[in-house]
């Protein structure tokens, strides 16, 4: 029962992700007004860690890594890292060392430091 429920959640999540990715593939957030805009950016004028993600995803889906990097380099770094974190957590029995390293306090605080420094940096330069 639990297994069935879990599987259907995975299937639904997969379909949602595919739907969203195809929206971001076919529509350019630069040209369309229907993409949500960052509230933090609108209110404060500063870029938040997520600003540019939508345009970066659009560029990435078209294979334009350079443009994606310009829009949101952090996302480009954190997406593969998140994938690795997810794999390490799901298969922690098989990769105990990887799991222990990635989920130790210092590597998580390191990720946090990168996010903060990069966000400050992108607003200064």
């Amino acid at each position: 029962m639990i297994r069935i429920k879990r599987r259907s959640i995975v299937v639904i999540a997969f379909l949602v992700v595919v739907a969203m990715l195809s929206v971001y593939f076919y529509f350019d957030p630069n040209d369309s007004v229907f993409f949500p805009r960052c509230v933090v950016k609108q209110l404060t004028g500063y870029d938040c860690p997520g600003c540019g993600s939508q345009r970066a995803i659009h560029a990435l889906l078209h294979g334009d890594i350079v443009t994606a990097w310009r829009y949101n380099a952090l996302m480009l770094l954190l997406l593969p890292l998140s994938l690795m974190l997810a794999v390490a957590e799901l298969y922690q029995q098989r990769f105990p060392r990887l799991y222990n390293i990635l989920y130790s306090r210092w590597s998580i605080l390191g990720i946090l430091a990168v996010i903060i420094v990069w966000t400050i940096g992108r607003n200064i330069w």
Partner: peptide
């Protein structure tokens, strides 16, 4: 991490 990237600071 995903929620941070989705602009929910």
């Amino acid at each position: 991490i995903l929620s941070t990237l989705c602009c929910c600071l």
